[in-house]
Amino acid sequence: MPHDETVQREGAANGTVSLAEAAKIKYLTPHNARFVRTKGNMLSVTVENKAYPSVYLHCSFPHSNRNQYISVRTLENEEVGMIESLDDFPAELAELLKEQIAIRYFAPVISKVLAIKEEFGYAYWEAETQAGRCRFTVRNGGGNVKLVSDQKLLIQDVDGNRFLIERLDQLSEKEYRMVEMCL
């Protein structure tokens, strides 16, 4: 609400620490960080002369915006820094980073729902996906099938595999009816 914003700005003007100052985000840019693909297809980074042999990219908004606010973390969950936007990086490097993001967040997009059979608290799906034809079992309830944006549906099976339906409105009438039952 505009009113809230005014209050916040006034707070900052009064000399209190602004949110940005308190949060102390360290942004990685092409100037202060050097990302390199390792021989074994992993990602390493050197920031201000400190080398991190393997780092992982965690998106802040994996469903709504994968290009911005990407946290670069070690396996020990230490944050090396954040990438504000992939657009700040040269195309080749941005591509490498996108590849790494795609490895971390694996959720094949469903291109066609072939069948969904629902019985006794579980739904048995069969679908064509980017990764090939998949059969998987989804437990009902507990948010295993959820809308992560207006039209994007995320499905998590009993093993923890994830699948995506990018646009609900582009499903055929028949597919939609089947999927709707699981919503």
Partner: peptide, 9 residues
């Protein structure tokens, strides 16, 4: 796999 000259998938 953690190798001497970096990690490998």
């Amino acid at each position: 796999a953690k190798e001497q000259d970096g990690c490998r998938i």
